[in-house]
Amino acid sequence: MMRLMSRSARMLAVAAVVTATLPFAANDAFAAGMPLEQRAQAAKTTADKGKTCRPARPFYWEIGDAGKTLASGRVGVRAPQADTLLPVASASKWIYAAYVAELRAGKLSDEDIEFLTMRSGYTRFKRCLSSDTVDTCLQTLANGKPDAATKGKFFYNGGHMQKHAGLIGLGDLDNRALAAQMRKVLGTSAPVSYNQPQLAGGVVSSADAYADFLRKLLGGKLALSSMLGSHAVCTNPANCEQAASTPTPARTSWHYSLGHWVEDDPQTGDGAFSSAGLFGFYPWIDASRSYYGIIARSSLLGTLLRGEGVRPALESAECGRQIRRAWETGTAQD
C-alpha cells in the first residue's frame, strides 16, 4: 500500500504517482483518438443500465473537456436538468480552495495548507443560519473554537474553512456578498449563490455553472489548476496515524489535497480528483487532467444519514467512477 509522509513539504505530485501505479489508472485510449461516439455511448450505457449507478437515480451526468461538454444525459424519473439549481454541499470546498489559491497567486502559506487540508484543529463546526455572516456563524455554538486533540490531524469538518475565511477578511460577508466575491476572484459562474455563508458546504449551483469552474481548472486558467493533488494527506484512521476522522468508508483509503479528494485507493482508485457533496452532487477531474465530469442530484437522505460512507455521496462517487472508466476505455461498465 502506498504511504505518504506526514510532512506537507514531501507530499507533492501525488497524481503523477498514482496514475502510474493504480490498477484502474487512466489508459492512453483518450490520447490514441478513440472515437467520441464510442466513449459517449459507453458512458451513456453505464449511466442508464449499470447496476452501480442504479442507487444514484435520479441524476444528471455530463463529461467534458476544457472547452465544452462532450456527452451528457438524464437518468431516472424527474432527473435534474443541466441548469437545475441544487445544494452542492461539500463540493463547495473545491471552490473555496480555488479562491484561496487565486487570492495568493498560487503561493500558499503553511497555514493556508493546514486549513485547506483539514488539519487546523477547528473541528467543532456544526452549522450556519441563512441569515448569518461568515463571522456570526463562527460565533455560533462552538463553531469557531479549536480542539487541541485534532490539531495537525486530518479531520473532515467545515470548521477549517469557516475559520480560515474569517482570518483572510471574509468575515463580514453574507450569502449574497460571499457568492459575488467568489465569482469575482474566480471568474466563473459558480457558485450561483449560497444558502448559508458556509465556505465548506453552502454553495447552490447547477451542473452547467459548476462545469464552468471545472473547465477553468482543466484549462489552466486558475492557480489551483497546477496544484491538483498537491500537499495531499492520508485520511483513513484505520491505517494512518495522522488521520482522526473521515466520511469515507473504512475500506477506502483516499488522500485529501487542497479542498478536494484524490481517489487513489490501492484497490479501487483511479487517481481522479473530486469533491462529493452530502446530497450526492459529485464533480471530478480525471487523473490525466484531460476531462471533467459531474453527477448532479440532491437526495434528502443526505440530511438523515451521516457518518461513515454517507450514502448519497458514496453512491454518486461509485457511479461516477464507473462512468469515468467507461469513458476512458470505450466499454460500458456494470
Rank of each mutant, 00 (worst) to 15 (best):
H255M: 12
T235E: 04
A232S: 14
M227P: 05
G219C: 05
P249L: 02
P247T: 00
N239R: 12
C234V: 09
H231Y: 15
N236I: 15
T246Y: 12
L228C: 03
N239V: 13
P249H: 04
H255L: 12
K221N: 05
Q242L: 11
G219E: 00
E241T: 13
A238K: 10
R251Q: 10
L222I: 01
N239Y: 01
E241D: 15
P247V: 04
H231C: 08
W254T: 13
W254E: 10
H255P: 09
A250Q: 14
R251D: 12
T246G: 05
R251G: 03
R251N: 08
Y256M: 05
S225I: 02
L258Y: 02
L222R: 00
S226D: 13
T252E: 10
P237R: 07
C234D: 14
A243M: 06
G219Y: 00
P249C: 06
L224G: 03
A243F: 06
V233K: 07
L258E: 07
L218M: 03
G229C: 08
A232M: 07
S225M: 02
A223K: 07
C240F: 11
K221P: 00
L218T: 06
L228Q: 11
A244T: 06
K221I: 08
T252C: 05
C234L: 12
T248G: 05
T235R: 02
S245T: 02
Q242R: 10
S226Y: 01
Y256A: 04
A244M: 07
L228D: 04
T235P: 05
H231L: 07
S257M: 04
L224C: 03
H255S: 14
H231I: 09
A223L: 01
N236W: 11
A232Y: 08
A250R: 13
L224A: 14
L222W: 00
G219Q: 01
T252F: 01
A250I: 12
E241Y: 09
M227L: 13
L228Y: 03
Q242Y: 07
N236A: 14
N239F: 01
T235Y: 06
M227Q: 14
S257H: 02
W254Q: 11
L224P: 00
G220W: 08
G229E: 09
R251E: 13
G219L: 02
P247N: 00
W254A: 12
S257N: 04
S230F: 06
S257F: 05
A223D: 07
N236Q: 11
Y256T: 04
A232V: 04
A238F: 05
A244S: 13
A244E: 13
K221M: 05
R251Y: 06
